[in-house]
């Protein structure tokens, strides 16, 4: 469809001049970027991990959350959640080496996700305090469907990997080649498609529980 591309570009040129030199465009863009900080909602005023914990539990995001002191405590947190929600301990465990090394005795785990999985446990790459979002990069140790197929999703996130603003996350990966999927997950799946009424668990998880691991004081 080279013809189509040429035709589209010719149609653009009918109205617009030929593109300006790249440095001119880049200079204009950097002037726009200089204005971004003044437009961000002024809400990340405290430590990013604390703001994150508050945001994920706010009515807009409506996840549940807790903080544990060390990663070793994560299986116990998962089991407490399962008991609270009356779930069995048959867990789809994200195939992440850090999760595999934990002591899951008392649970049955498998490293794949089923179509109707009840409970999946994962480890996020990081999070964003501003929006209360978890971030996943698809990979061998982070399959995308773990965040979308289960009914309950419990996710651990190291407190050090929480960026204050969305732009801080972007800056951390600038210039690197992107994974197939970058997923920002901000609360459990929901829909307002019937009369505007919010219902959780539309296609993705109906429950999202976030476990922040560690804190600056420890």
């Amino acid at each position: 469809m080279t013809d189509a591309k040429q035709a589209i570009f010719a149609a653009i040129r009918k109205t617009l001049p030929a593109p300006a030199p790249a440095p001119t465009i880049a200079a204009e863009l950097s002037q726009l970027r200089a204005r971004i900080n003044a437009t961000r909602p002024d809400r990340v005023s405290g430590p990013a991990d604390e703001v994150f914990l508050e945001r994920v539990q706010s009515p807009g995001v409506a996840a549940t959350a807790e903080r544990i002191n060390s990663f070793d405590e994560f299986p116990a947190a998962v089991m407490r959640y399962a008991v609270r929600h009356n779930l069995g301990l048959d867990i789809a465990l994200q195939p992440h080496p850090d999760l595999a090394t934990l002591n899951w005795s008392g649970c049955q785990t498998h490293d794949h996700i089923g179509t109707d999985e009840t409970l999946a446990v994962g480890l996020a790459l990081g999070g964003i305090a501003e929006t209360g979002s978890l971030i996943f990069h698809s990979s061998q140790i982070s399959p995308t469907l773990f965040a979308f197929l289960p009914l309950h999703h419990i996710v651990a996130i190291p407190y050090k990997n929480i960026w204050p603003w969305m732009e801080d996350y972007v800056a951390s990966f600038a210039g690197k080649s992107p994974p197939r999927n970058v997923n920002f997950v901000t609360g459990a799946s929901g829909t307002t498609d019937i009369e505007g009424a919010l219902v959780r668990g539309a296609h993705g998880p109906g429950w999202l529980h976030i476990v922040v691991v560690g804190s600056p004081g420890l």
């Binding site: 997923n183 609360g187 459990a188």
Partner: peptide, 8 residues
């Protein structure tokens, strides 16, 4: 403030 799922 953000959709539940924002994917690149």
């Amino acid at each position: 403030e953000l959709t539940q799922y924002t994917t690149f």
